[in-house]
Design a binder for these strands. Structure first.
Length: 401
DNA sequence: CGTAGGGTTAAGGATT
DNA sequence: AATCCTTAACCCTACG
């Protein structure tokens, strides 16, 4: 109505966002060549929303148009369903790591990275904004849900997810906030730490990641052990003993029978999860955490690497006891692999180089600090990198201070 | 400092 | 063409 002045400022910051590096200058420029898998962006319109051409979001504008002053600020593409779902599920995975009194930037960085890995080119800021907008929508929807809002649209499924996250949160009580990624020492606390990104997971296997992204034999890069049987988690079911897992996980939050009666008898709610040559059946009667643990257990995932399930349509599904039964493919974060040169005191030439794979910003920081470095420097250049985000896969770096 | 959370602005497609 | 509607992106404030 009466707001005619101010576009200035807004416009500016928006442009800045895409062009000059306020937020992460989209990885594409510089030499961050995270090649996105050809921008999947399946264009399922988001709840009837429109997703015009192209599928490539904001960031590609600047390739041709660095900062022509009068660039008519384009807002980013509307998020498509898969994007939103992926975001929700990624956020869900690490929700307990968010700490209101500390910077969560690295967490959003990570989420953004994961998004990019899945072909969704969304900056951390875009992710936070989207998340916040989702929360707002959700709350608003909840307020006036009495009045005929009960459409079963995609949004409702977002809301379901969000509700669950919030439920988990409140259920876990304040503890999730202050005692951050609880150290793994001890019982139930351990499983609260998500399999997804165990940032605080020092100590175990600190050379980290003995399991590089792709092993020489070509088998998928997990530290799968030979025996792929289940060892313990009640929801991890082998093909042979699917019936045995009556397990309701210790973290089973839902008392309410939900839809219909919820008996103790195992009602066969099992999904099939495939990874490479291995197929396992996983019971999904527990909480998201429990299901995750079951998957880890079944496939012997002992890494901090992110993993996720995609259904037969390649849609990333969040782990949920209500998730549709069926066949899923397990995907594991491939990490970001670079080469690092090591020098001897006197010798100007590198003694040896080593491949190094990072899965999280914390991996990266930990790696640096363990060697007394503050950043990495490109091997034949002088640019320093103190964030994993800026590293270029396969490039060569050396430690620097 | 940072975050959450609420509000606001405006881009841009859809509808009339 | 005008209007409506959705939603990305921004602003502000309280709170820790």
């Amino acid at each position: 109505m009466y707001m005619s002045e101010k576009p200035q400022q807004q416009q500016e910051s928006a442009i800045d966002f895409y062009n000059s590096g306020k937020q992460e200058p989209p990885h594409q420029n510089n030499n961050m060549i995270i090649q996105l898998p050809s921008q999947p962006h399946h264009h399922l319109a988001d709840g009837g929303a429109t997703t015009p051409s192209g599928g490539i979001t904001a960031t590609n504008h600047n390739s041709s148009n660095p900062s022509s002053s009068s660039a008519p600020k384009k807002r980013a593409e509307t998020w498509v369903q898969e994007e939103t779902r992926t975001l929700i599920s990624l956020r869900k995975e690490i929700d307990m790591l968010f700490n209101t009194s500390k910077s969560n930037k690295h967490l959003w960085d990570n989420i953004s990275l994961k998004m990019r890995e899945k072909g969704f080119d969304r900056s951390p800021t875009m992710c936070t904004d989207k998340w916040r907008n989702l929360l707002k929508e959700f709350k608003k929807a909840k307020q006036n849900n009495q009045d005929g809002n009960g459409n079963g649209s995609a949004k409702m499924s977002y809301y379901k997810e969000i509700e669950e996250i919030l439920r988990e949160r409140s259920k876990n009580g304040p503890s999730w906030k202050n005692s951050e990624a609880s150290n793994n020492a001890g019982g139930a606390g351990a499983s609260k730490v998500d399999s997804f990104m165990q940032f605080a997971d020092k100590g175990i296997d600190d050379t980290g990641l003995t399991f590089g992204p792709v092993e020489a034999n070509g088998r998928s890069a997990l530290n799968l052990e030979r025996r792929l049987d289940h060892d313990g988690h009640p929801l991890a079911i082998t093909a042979a003993d699917a019936v045995g897992a009556s397990g309701v996980s210790p973290w089973n939050w839902r008392e309410t029978p939900g839809s219909g009666e919820q008996t103790n008898t195992y009602d066969g709610r099992v999904i099939t999860v495939k990874l490479g040559d291995y197929t396992k059946r996983i019971g999904i009667d527990g909480s998201a955490e429990a299901i995750k643990e079951a998957i880890k257990s079944a496939f012997r995932l002992r890494t901090r690497r992110a993993f996720w399930l995609e259904d037969e349509d390649n849609v990333v599904r969040s782990l949920d006891r209500d998730m549709p039964l069926g066949n899923y493919t397990l995907h594991v974060d491939e990490g970001l692999t670079i080469k690092v040169c090591f020098y001897e005191e006197s010798d100007p030439l590198p003694v040896h180089t080593e491949d190094k794979t990072f899965y999280t910003e914390d991996d990266f920081r930990e790696f640096l600090s363990r060697r007394g470095w503050t950043c990495l420097r490109e091997y034949n250049g002088y640019r320093n990198f103190d964030s994993m985000d800026e590293l270029c896969p396969g490039a060569i770096y050396r430690g620097s201070n």
